[in-house]
Measured scan of single mutants.
Amino acid sequence: QSSFEIPDDVPLPAGWEMAKTSSGQRYFLNHIDQTTTWQDPRKAMLSQMN
C-alpha cells in the first residue's frame, strides 16, 4: 500500500463508495462492477494527472 492517504474531501470516482471495517480500515466498493478493493481509486486518478 502507498504511504500517503488521500484526504476524505477528495471525491471518489462515479460509482464508488468508501466504507470501513469494524477495525476502522478503509476499503472501497465499486458499485459499477460490484467489486471491493483495499486500493483507493483516487490514487490511480491522481497518478494519471501527474
Score class of each variant (00 low, 15 high):
T21L: 07
L46C: 10
S2Q: 07
S2G: 11
E17T: 12
S2D: 15
F28S: 03
M49G: 15
A19N: 10
P41V: 00
N50M: 02
W38T: 07
I6G: 05
L46S: 14
T37K: 02
G15F: 08
E5Q: 12
D8Q: 07
Q39S: 10
N30H: 04
P41T: 00
W16G: 04
S2P: 03
Q39I: 08
Q39F: 14
D9V: 07
A19R: 13
T36M: 02
F28A: 02
S47T: 11
S47A: 14
R42K: 00
M49Y: 10
T21V: 05
D9N: 13
L12H: 03
W38A: 06
Q48V: 08
P11I: 07
Q39L: 09
V10N: 12
A14W: 07
M45Q: 13
S23Y: 08
Y27V: 05
S47C: 13
I6L: 11
Q34N: 06
M45K: 11
I32M: 07
T36N: 06
D40I: 01
L12F: 09
E5G: 07
Q48E: 12
S3Y: 02
K20Y: 14
E17W: 01
W16A: 04
T36S: 05
D33A: 11
A19P: 00
N30A: 00
L29V: 12
S3K: 11
M49N: 15
N30C: 10
Q25E: 15
A14K: 15
S23N: 14
Q48L: 06
Q34K: 15
R26C: 11
I6T: 10
D40R: 01
A14M: 11
S47Q: 15
S3T: 08
Q48D: 14
G24H: 07
R42F: 01
I6P: 07
W16D: 03
Q48G: 13
S22L: 10
P7C: 14
S3P: 12
S2T: 07
F28Q: 03
S23E: 15
L29F: 08
G24D: 08
K43V: 10
S47D: 13
M18S: 10
A14Y: 10
F4S: 14
L46F: 14
A14S: 12
F28L: 02
Q1K: 15
Q25V: 11
T37I: 02
S23K: 13
M49W: 10
D8H: 11
A19L: 06
A19W: 04
V10P: 08
Q48Y: 09
H31R: 09
L46K: 14
Q48W: 07
D33I: 07
T36L: 03
R42C: 02
G24W: 00
L29P: 02
H31M: 07
P7H: 15
E17N: 05
A14C: 07
G24K: 04
D8L: 06
Q1P: 05
F28D: 03
A44Q: 15
T36H: 04
P11T: 05
K20V: 14
Q48I: 07
T36E: 02
F4D: 13
P7I: 13
L29N: 03
F4Y: 14
R42V: 00
M45N: 11
Q48F: 05
R42S: 02
D33H: 07
D9R: 08
D9S: 11
Q1A: 10
I32N: 02
M49R: 11
R42E: 02
P13S: 02
S3I: 07
R42A: 01
F4P: 08
M45A: 11
A19T: 09
K43Q: 04
M49K: 15
D40W: 01
P11M: 08
H31E: 05
F4L: 08
Y27R: 01
P7L: 12
R26S: 12
M18G: 06
V10I: 12
T37N: 01
P41G: 00
D40T: 02
P7G: 05
F28N: 04
Y27K: 03
D9I: 09
W16M: 00
Y27E: 04
Q34T: 05
T21N: 06
Q34Y: 06
D33V: 09
K20D: 10
K20C: 11
R42L: 00
L12R: 02
S22M: 10
I6R: 08
W38K: 07
K20G: 05
A19V: 10
K20M: 12
Q25W: 05
L46I: 14
M18Y: 06
L46V: 14
A44R: 12
T36F: 03
M18K: 08
S2E: 09
N50I: 09
D9Y: 09
F4G: 03
T36I: 02
S2K: 08
Q34R: 14
L29G: 02
V10H: 12
S47F: 09
P7A: 15
Q39M: 12
T37Q: 05
E17F: 00
F4T: 11
R42W: 01
A44M: 04
F4E: 13
D40H: 04
S47N: 07
E5R: 10
I6H: 15
S22R: 12
W38C: 04
T36Q: 04
S23Q: 14
L12P: 07
W16R: 03
N50H: 06
A44H: 10
E17V: 05
Q34I: 01
G24R: 03
V10Q: 13
Y27P: 01
T36V: 08
P41D: 00
G15W: 04
W16T: 05
M18T: 07
I32A: 04
Q25G: 07
R42M: 01
I6Q: 07
L46P: 14
R26Q: 12
A44L: 12
A44V: 09
G15K: 04
S47V: 11
W38G: 05
F28H: 00
P13L: 02
P13H: 00
Q34L: 07
P11Y: 04
E5P: 11
S47M: 14
I6W: 04
L12Y: 08
F28R: 00
S3E: 08
E5I: 11
G24E: 07
M45C: 12
Q39E: 09
W38N: 03
I32L: 13
P41C: 00
S23L: 11
K20Q: 12
Q25D: 15
A14H: 09
D33S: 12
E17D: 12
D8G: 10
T35N: 08
L46W: 08
A14E: 14
D9C: 10
P41I: 00
M45S: 11
G24V: 01
S22E: 14
G15E: 06
R42H: 01
Q25N: 09
M49D: 14
I32W: 03
I6C: 11
T21F: 03
T37S: 11
I6Y: 11
Q25M: 10
D9E: 14
T21C: 06
F28G: 02
S2C: 06
L29S: 05
S23M: 07
G15C: 05
S2M: 13
N50R: 08
T35D: 04
E5H: 09
A44P: 14
I6E: 03
A44T: 12
S47I: 12
S47E: 15
I32C: 12
I6M: 15
A14G: 12
N50A: 10
D40F: 01
